[in-house]
């Protein structure tokens, strides 16, 4: 995947300005940045759900923003996406959720679909949970089911939207290991957007750091850990204050309080 000069605005506000990315085949690439920097928007741009104002997004030689709906849907059959909420269909049980893309896009017999679904569920450790409904799953289990569904059609690429957010340490460890193992075992290309530095840096081959609509730094986790940039240092080592201020921009504190008293 190649991204060149990507710009995207929401109203007057620039979400991305001239963003360049290179995501190599077979690797785990992470795009990190503080909350609210548009990481999820970036995934939606890469998946063709929204169109950029300018720039090139190329996946496997196809220019995503220029594709018609049919071509885009053909491309998406080769892309899996794990949503932050899991986005499981609440009226279907675990088995039917994972079987959904197989039933929609293939003409396989129910016997074969059964076998494939069990294989995918086994890969995420939830073969025994196939009869459960999404409401009966914990957050971590829901995300693992969603991961099984995302790889149901054996995609070439999986996009992960904040896969570790809100997970307990065990689920986080399971997901971290799963993403790496699946990437290597299925020869996938994985793109993770996340703000969980430790977990992401542990499995990513390459990191991009996003701030204020631009890529501020990129490199391997080891290179970024040693970066001289104060911003990168603050983000990678989770320091509470630094170039990125703790305070949201506001008028001077004292003058605001005094003005209010005077009024």
């Amino acid at each position: 995947m190649t991204v060149r000069g990507l710009s995207f605005h929401r109203g007057e506000r620039a979400i991305f300005r001239e963003v360049d990315l290179d995501i190599p085949r077979g690797k785990v690439t992470a795009i990190m940045g503080p909350s609210g920097t548009g990481k999820t928007t970036l995934l939606r741009l890469l998946g063709g759900q929204i169109r950029p104002d300018a720039g090139l997004i190329e996946v496997d030689g196809l220019r995503v923003p220029e594709l018609g709906r049919l071509e885009l849907y053909q491309l998406r059959q080769r892309m899996g996406m794990l949503f932050q909420s899991g986005a499981l269909f609440t009226d279907l049980n675990v088995f039917d959720n994972v079987a959904f893309p197989l039933r929609e896009h293939t003409r396989l017999s129910e016997n074969l679909i059964h076998t494939l679904v069990l294989m995918k569920l086994e890969a995420v450790g939830l073969r025994g949970a196939r009869e459960l409904m999404p409401a009966e799953l914990s957050g971590g289990m829901a995300r693992r089911v969603a991961l099984a569904r995302a790889i149901a059609l054996d995609p070439m690429m999986v996009l992960y939207d904040e896969p570790f957010a809100g997970q307990d340490p065990i689920s986080m460890g399971v997901l971290t290991q799963l993403i790496r193992t699946l990437n290597d075992a299925l020869c996938l290309t994985s793109i993770i957007v996340s703000h969980d530095v430790k977990e992401t840096a542990a499995i990513a081959d390459y990191l991009y750091l996003l701030s204020d609509g631009q890529i501020v730094e990129h490199g391997t986790p080891a290179e970024l850990g040693r970066s001289p940039s104060p911003w990168v240092d603050q983000f990678m080592h989770a320091r509470p204050d630094g170039p990125m201020s703790f305070h949201y921009p506001a008028p001077a504190y004292e003058s605001e309080l005094l003005l209010r008293d005077a009024a």
Binding site: R44, G47, Q49, R69, L72, Y73, Q74, R76, Q77, M79, G80, M81, F83, Q84, S85, A87, L88, F89, T90, F100, P101, E104, H105, A146, R149
Partner: peptide, 14 residues
Amino acid sequence: ATEQLASMQMMAVD
């Protein structure tokens, strides 16, 4: 709201 429609689109289902 629960991204089920978006996930369907990402699975190439209209």
